[in-house]
Nucleic acid binder design. Structure first.
Lengths: 230, 230
DNA sequence: GTAGTAGTTTAGGCTATTCTAAAAATAATG
DNA sequence: CATTATTTTTAGAATAGCCTAAACTACTAC
């Protein structure tokens, strides 16, 4: 603790940290050390250390024992990284024939290696898209982020028609399972029956019947065809 | 010097080192510490250190005070890295609209971040090409490397017709200069006059007259339209 | 064949990122 | 509100990759 240098904003670890904070911030006011350690697969002390250095760099606001929050600069940086990541994911699918479950890990590496020039070329080639292949929103270059009103499949009422809008997981196994079941962005969905006690859902995907465990269903968000969600 | 761990073959520095040794080996039996330091823009002691660690990893054969040579494994690895680099360069040009002078630095970063899956997709998409946008040979997946018989422009006799085969530089400024002069892979070339005392060359590029300094000409290799070189 | 120079190596250090083990603070519970 | 359990932080250490300054080899020229 003698002296401590501020984090260099462009390092891989710092960028990963920013992304993790941003993601967790969606669900909690301040992001705890342990939550970050878990998400980043590093030890809690490493998180504390990084938090210190990133506070010196004014990327996060950190209070001892009370977790972390992004500063304005931090949030801007985080969105920049997320934009890169999602553009790359989309590119891998549309131009290089990647399957959905393959893109995350590849993009995770690429996002740190690639120049702004490269990202601009992708955006151009993809005609400035707004959604990545999971259905997540791609932040704009100016930091704009267009939130969508989505509904978790687990909360979709029986008999209501909706469309698959988002497959929210980075785990290849989960994604492959969902694809195997027939879930694809845009497919038409309707819940036919819901078993009690966290039992499976019986649904219609583009007219074809399927059964899905409720844990797997957690990773699916939908957009109702008409009216608001719930 | 207490203990020293072998280099981890997949690190960025190690891969850069392998590439540098491979390149320099074309011109010299054993590659000296200073030559590597120069090419990699690191200090001589850092080179020595790396040489030690890479010898433990059996990637190079290193003799104190007598430089380094690639082992068989080392050469295989080097070719793998070069293959990646060149495929990426070609891809940047053909699919993402990069200019020749922009590709090197980008590829330099990408080659370390990208998976084998990615490289395979590129090769597929580019229809298994054999030349990169500089005109350099892309090593095949199996490590095969098809050498070409080329002639330096500076050694092309007067009045002999040839085609531009290779623009051998990674320096963006040099490449841009050559492009500005009208040199493009495949263009028809003929030397009209050669000034003495390392003076400029007067040449015909696709029928149009141009003048090029002899240093710049160094970076150009040509393939004679008929007969052997020299 | 010895002196000087050019090239190389050793010694010792620094930074970023990670770790484990132990101490301290907060939060939860009776 | 005191005690326990959980979470977080401090302390101390390791590694890869780099550095500078100083010591040492090897080659070259008289």
């Amino acid at each position: 603790m003698v002296t401590m240098r501020p984090a260099t904003a462009d390092s891989q670890s710092v960028q990963d940290f920013l992304k993790a904070v941003y993601t967790l911030q969606q669900k909690m006011e301040r992001v705890s050390t342990n939550a970050l350690a878990e998400m980043l697969s590093i030890s809690a002390p490493s998180v504390t250390d990084m938090a210190h250095r990133m506070m010196l760099a004014e990327l996060v606001n950190y209070e001892k024992y009370h977790g972390v929050r992004l500063t304005e600069t931090g949030e801007r940086e985080a969105l920049r990284v997320i934009r890169r990541h999602r553009l790359i994911e989309l590119y891998l699918v549309t131009d290089l024939g990647y399957a959905l479950h393959e893109v995350h890990d590849e993009a995770e590496q690429l996002e740190h290696a690639v120049s702004d020039r490269f990202i601009a070329a992708l955006a151009e080639k993809l005609d400035h898209p707004t959604l990545d292949p999971h259905g997540d929103v791609i932040p704009a270059i100016d930091g704009t982020f267009h939130y969508r009103e989505l509904c978790k499949l687990t909360e979709l009422p029986l008999g209501i028609k909706a469309k698959v809008a988002c497959l929210t997981s980075n785990d290849p196994d989960i994604l492959r399972h969902l694809m195997d079941k027939g879930f694809t962005l845009g497919s038409q969905i309707e819940i036919i029956a819901r078993d009690p006690f966290d039992g499976p859902l019986t649904i219609l995907i583009d007219g074809k019947s399927a059964v899905v465990g409720c844990t797997a269903a957690t990773y699916i968000s939908v957009e109702q065809d008409k009216g608001a969600c719930k």
